[in-house]
Design a binder for these strands. Structure first.
Lengths: 207, 207
DNA sequence: CGGTGTGAATCTATTCACAGCA
DNA sequence: TGCTGTGAATAGATTCACACCG
């Protein structure tokens, strides 16, 4: 049961869409309309979940929305809650403190860290806001698996090193730098400049 | 001269790293160390630029940093300034107002939009902050090509439609929804939840 | 030698095409 | 007929392997 990286990405997006629909079942061509991915790709993605029996059990034509949703989440490891933290509570980092984009996902914000103690006092949040030096202690204690890294570029690598040492499993990196981490730690780069470059490259390519 | 999407992404990241170095020249294996991508991939990426002659002219072993940087930017369409705007000045959107991650890139923040007029007055920025209904007027007038879409999920599609109607070329979408746009408009999704899902899927796959 | 550039081979992902089913 | 599921074909990206250059 190995779902490839692009397949995993599409399936994750599918779950979001399934959350948004109140239909009882969907067909692969309806999903094609909704997503822009070919129905064949969608069927292959779903069949990679190796769940034909369970899906069929739901009967009818198309996929039963709830069953499909549940199976994708199970297979992608999204059915158990996962704790994450914000590192760097500047404007970008603190904007995630009251971000609602994690609703309906298994991800729970469990802590925020910043090296500036004043800032910790000014900000107000539902989760504990702690000084950076507590990372090593707090991350294993709370069982935090993921970090949103929102520190300035020149501190990003150092912060990543601290997180890795504390046992983090994955980092979503908002800094425009390439992080070097040991094998087994996953990084996802989410950088405005990169995104804009990507867009530009695609647009200049198509003329 | 068609650079593929992944190649374009890596080249864009390379430019960033080249900005950060003060060496006169780099070899593909040094870049391998720095980036984690194989030297073969890097050489192929660079050779896709079709610039052997120019690079060779710089002489010596390895690539001349400035020449390489210049050529990548040229080929990727990054050597001319491009204007972008923020749509949705909530915590996330407004955090980009003083974001320094666009320094050393060709992207210039040229305006911010929000439907809440009060918010426009409260915020302070170097660029004009305008009510949403001015999008249709301002985007063509200022020649804005890209938008950072930071509105709440339920307004994202409507905002995207407005932007498209105003002639935007590309959208970096921060909302956790799948935008539907006409052929030719490029979308880059940059969503925390997706990034976390991706990480999880990869991590659960590797055990 | 230690480098680049690049065809050939491999690996990965997507699309096609169709069998099988309700 | 319109759907899923899937082997086969195609397209795409990466890696290998080696010619060639200073």
């Amino acid at each position: 049961m190995a779902v490839s990286k692009p397949t995993a990405g599409r399936l994750a997006a599918l779950v979001r869409m399934l959350n948004g629909t109140d239909a009882k079942s969907v067909t692969s061509s309806e999903l094609e309309q909704l997503t822009g991915w070919s129905s064949a790709t969608i069927r292959k993605d779903i069949s990679a979940l190796d769940a034909a029996a369970e899906l069929e059990a739901a009967g009818g034509t198309g996929y039963d929305v709830q069953t499909l949703r549940r199976i994708i989440m199970e297979r992608l490891g999204l059915s158990v809650e996962k704790k994450c933290c914000i590192v760097g509570l500047g404007r970008l980092g603190s904007s995630f403190l009251d971000y609602n984009g994690l609703e309906k996902t298994p991800f729970i914000l469990a802590a925020g860290f910043d090296s500036n103690v004043n800032r910790l006092e000014i900000l107000d949040a539902d989760v504990p806001l702690l000084p950076t030096f507590k990372i090593a202690d707090v991350i294993p204690r709370l069982g935090i698996e993921y970090a949103l890294l929102c520190v300035p570029p020149d501190h990003a690598q150092a912060a990543a090193d601290k997180l890795v040492a504390a046992g983090i499993k994955g980092i979503v990196n908002y800094a425009p730098v390439h992080l070097v981490v040991p094998e087994g730690i996953e990084i996802e780069n989410v950088c405005v400049a990169d995104a804009l470059c990507s867009l530009t490259a695609r647009i200049s390519a198509s003329n």
